[in-house]
Simulated scan of single mutants.
Amino acid sequence: MDKREFGAFLRSRRERITPAEVGLPAGKRRRTPGLRRDEVAHLAFISTEYYTRLEQARAPHPSREVLAGLARALRLSDVEGTYLHRLVGIEPSLPPGPSRLVRQSILDLLDRLPQAAAIVVSATYEVIAWNDLACALMEDFSALAPRERNLARRAFLDPGPHGRRLYGVTDVDEFSRTCALHLRAAAARYPNDPETTQLINELRSGSAEFAELWADHDVCAQTMLCKTFHHPAVGPVSVNCDVLDITDRDQRVVIYTAEPGSASENALALLSVVGTQRMDVPG
């Protein structure tokens, strides 16, 4: 254990956090930048004396529970938490399941893409964030229960709105193949997550196609560059599909954009106006 680096790292993280960020009053006589040692100790559920000794490189080897408490109290990122563990010579525990918490900066990014439909999916293809145009192009995710927002279930088990499999996309077979291998990789990363296991068992028992793909044991994906949605109101919408990995959350941002000046760009512009209104239903 590198006690000196461990203590210096704790102090540097402590000094960068304001009391307001952890719900504490600033006070008028605060002499230290960031939090005080006793405040970090309280948030981490350890004694002030022990925390002080950790910063001063005088404490014994901290346990995994203490490290988890410090990471939580100091608002460490996943990368910082991993570094903290490795300073002590302990590999961090695997997360119990895929993260559904989307960073605020990613949510802001979705809102700043008014001409693109964009969603965020978890490692198990649950749609966990979206913008308005994505709802207009695909479906209103806000009106669905979390279980119903899963694109794997949509692709293999549920025809979806208007009887269109996966919103009528032209590359549904390629998507299905990629989905199966991504889920195999997720199962390896989260072997103890009951929701991941349940989803895969549900797909294997309910879809012969998925069961066959699963039996192939493929783990290498191909990049999908473009696809066409067959929308019930505006017709075919051809889009470029770009995927941005959020590695620290094991999530992906999927962005659909149309070629400038194309009929599909006009269709997306129309969808951005009408939103999720049903234009195909007689008034």
Score class of each variant (00 low, 15 high):
28 K>I: 09
31 R>G: 00
32 T>M: 02
32 T>W: 08
37 R>D: 04
38 D>Y: 04
38 D>M: 09
39 E>M: 12
41 A>K: 08
42 H>D: 15
43 L>K: 04
44 A>T: 07
44 A>P: 03
44 A>L: 03
45 F>S: 15
47 S>T: 15
47 S>R: 11
51 Y>V: 13
51 Y>A: 07
53 R>V: 12
54 L>C: 15
56 Q>G: 12
56 Q>K: 11
58 R>V: 08
60 P>D: 13
61 H>Y: 10
61 H>N: 10
62 P>M: 08
63 S>E: 09
64 R>G: 03
65 E>D: 10
65 E>M: 05
66 V>R: 01
66 V>S: 07
72 R>V: 00
72 R>G: 11
74 L>F: 14
74 L>S: 05
74 L>D: 05
76 L>E: 11
77 S>R: 04
77 S>M: 07
80 E>W: 02
81 G>T: 10
81 G>D: 14
81 G>R: 15
82 T>F: 00
83 Y>I: 04
84 L>Q: 11
85 H>F: 11
85 H>I: 06
89 G>K: 10
89 G>E: 10
92 P>V: 09
92 P>I: 07
94 L>E: 09
94 L>H: 13
94 L>S: 12
95 P>R: 13
98 P>H: 05
99 S>T: 10
99 S>H: 02
103 R>L: 13
103 R>F: 04
104 Q>Y: 02
107 L>A: 06
107 L>P: 09
109 L>N: 07
